[in-house]
């Protein structure tokens, strides 16, 4: 079976500052991976490489068998649009649009179609159906992060990448978000790649990669 994400021998340096060197790993369908490490260890850099926002100095990245490396920006945009959903720590939604319209926009951009039934279902699972017509700034942190999960998942991506999705949340909300991430990802058949320094997430995703030690733990 084709790996959802296959990273082989990538290196990345900012000037002479070598952040990642010769890193390899892969994630199979139905599997999730936690990227751990303290602040500054290169988690966001790796996320940006995987999502094609940055290009590695060397090495290769494949998503569902399609190369993210060695192609131009527009092709990376296209691959990301078709296969990858992204959640950030604070940047979650388009500010001028309601939650529902954010999701519609995400669907429209991803597949060219909108599907209100799918949106309602997702909002329902995430417990924010009653806020569907609110603007992002009217939501609490936890609600906004749930809406962001909905936004990233609504296009049914093969791979969902999240950079510090729970770091800004309190324990209760972090628990809740993590559980929802796992549950909705499973329901949609999406693979999760989560970068975090938040050790609370270990209990949800057993497999992790610690960038600080560069050693893959079981």
């Amino acid at each position: 079976m084709t790996a959802v994400l296959d990273v082989s021998a990538i290196s990345k340096a900012y000037g002479s500052d070598r952040i990642l060197s010769d890193l390899s790993f892969s994630v199979e369908p139905g599997e999730h991976l936690l990227l751990l490490g303290p602040s500054g260890s290169g988690k966001s850099t790796l996320i940006n490489l995987v999502t094609g926002l940055l290009t590695p100095d060397s090495g290769e990245i494949r998503i569902g068998g399609e190369a993210m490396t060695g192609i131009d920006g527009a092709a990376r945009d296209d691959l990301r649009r078709r296969r990858v959903g992204i959640i950030f720590q604070t940047l979650r939604l388009v500010s001028a649009l309601s939650i529902r319209n954010n999701l519609r926009m995400a669907q429209q951009l991803g597949s060219g179609r909108t599907d209100d039934a799918a949106i309602d279902q997702l909002l329902d699972i995430l417990g924010i159906a009653h806020r569907a017509d609110a603007k992002p700034r009217q939501l609490s942190h936890g609600q906004a992060q749930r809406a962001a999960i909905a936004r990233a998942l609504v296009g049914r991506p093969d791979l969902m990448v999240a950079d510090e999705p729970t770091s800004a949340l309190d324990d209760a909300n972090a628990q809740r978000i993590a559980q929802l991430l796992i549950d909705t990802a499973r329901a949609q058949g999406t693979t999760l790649l989560i970068a975090t320094h938040d050790q609370r997430l270990r209990q949800f995703i057993p497999r992790s990669l610690d960038l600080a030690t560069m050693a893959e733990a079981a």
């Binding site: 945009d77 940047l91 979650r92 939604l93 388009v94 500010s95 926009m105 936004r151």
Partner: peptide
């Protein structure tokens, strides 16, 4: 002010 918003749109797949 909207740079982040517009970047998000790009990430979401807007050309």
């Amino acid at each position: 002010a909207r740079e982040a918003d517009l970047a998000l749109l790009r990430v979401m797949g807007a050309s």
